[in-house]
Design a protein around this nucleic acid. Structure first.
Length: 112
DNA sequence: TAATTGACATAAC
DNA sequence: TGTTATGCCAATT
């Protein structure tokens, strides 16, 4: 619906996440300036399935590296497979080398 | 319009 | 050290 809403910002950042890397809701929210809107980031991801191009929401996890919203992908195992396909080690919906694959937009993302 | 929810985060106990 | 409680911002009902 709204193309200029807070969601678009979230989608943009998530799309900048390189393959094999993951980020957290809090990192995205903080990057957008609204540190407390970490929940809204996850909410936006829930609507990302209606947005084109498809947002790699499988690269977005909570601060513990747990694949919380896997169910939103339609297939819980699909999210884990996608991450493993990108070289990310996931065990029991938990990213093992989370800190190694963690991608901080405020640090590694370069704005145009 | 107001109240509640939510794929989180942080502080306190 | 593990669990509980409160806060954050935006969207939904």
């Amino acid at each position: 619906m709204e193309n200029d809403s807070f969601y678009e910002k979230v989608y943009w950042v998530v799309r900048q996440v390189p393959a094999g890397r993951v980020t957290t809701y809090g990192a995205i929210a903080a990057f957008l300036g609204t540190k407390g809107s970490s929940r809204v980031v996850g909410y936006a991801m829930g609507a990302s399935v209606h947005v084109l191009p498809r947002v790699p929401a499988h690269r977005v996890v909570n601060r513990t590296g747990l694949l919380t919203g896997k169910q939103r992908f339609g297939s819980p195992h699909l999210m884990q497979q996608l991450l493993e396909n990108e070289g990310i080690v996931v065990e029991d919906d938990q990213i093992k080398n989370f800190k190694e694959v963690f991608w901080d937009p405020a640090t590694e993302l370069i704005l145009p």
